[in-house]
């Protein structure tokens, strides 16, 4: 076992984990953060996307021990004081989900995308989400949601920022 200490959704946690434990397993099974889902488990689908030190990663393709000393944000840490994050709002507003399975990953990747590029074109949104699969084929409304979030962010405020 290896001891790790990290910040998850603003809370400092310390645990003993097996080196082979994946970050997504750690989040779900040790911390109960089941908002982050396991989709393909082969680092293709992006459903397990979280932020590691502010950048999107596929948490099924990171070891928990690699996150030692770092900061993780999951879909459960996006809303503040019961107020949905602007990107979450946008997905609700534009029907950016059907079954909802890909949604946590889609939203986390969209937040990263808007952090880097606050006013993306439709093409840039599609490219930026290429690592996230939606099997309801709901890409249209997902793209609309990201563009909506970008459009409705305040002049000085980036939609991705929190």
């Amino acid at each position: 076992m290896t001891q790790i200490s990290l910040t998850v959704d603003g809370t400092q946690v310390t645990d003993d984990v097996e080196p082979r434990m994946l970050l997504v397993q750690y989040l779900r099974e040790k911390l109960g953060k089941t908002g982050t889902v396991i989709g393909c488990d082969t680092s293709n689908c992006g459903a397990c996307t979280v932020h590691l030190d502010g950048r999107s990663v596929k948490s099924c393709n990171v070891l928990a021990v690699q996150a030692d000393g770092h900061e993780v944000t999951t879909i459960e840490g996006l809303a503040t004081d019961g107020q949905l994050h602007p990107v979450q709002e946008a997905f609700r507003e534009c029907h950016g989900l059907q079954c909802g399975f890909c949604t946590p990953g889609m939203i986390m990747q969209s937040v990263d995308l808007l952090n880097e590029n606050p006013h993306p074109t439709e093409q840039e949104v599609r490219l930026g989400l290429e690592g996230n699969l939606c099997r309801c084929t709901g890409y249209h409304n997902i793209v609309k949601s990201v563009l909506y979030a970008a459009e409705h962010a305040g002049q000085d405020e980036k939609a991705g920022a929190r």
Binding site: S43, G46, T49, L52, V57, K58, Q109, L113, G131
Partner: peptide
Amino acid sequence: VADSQVRHR
């Protein structure tokens, strides 16, 4: 290379 998430790591 791959996708945005993979490029970050």
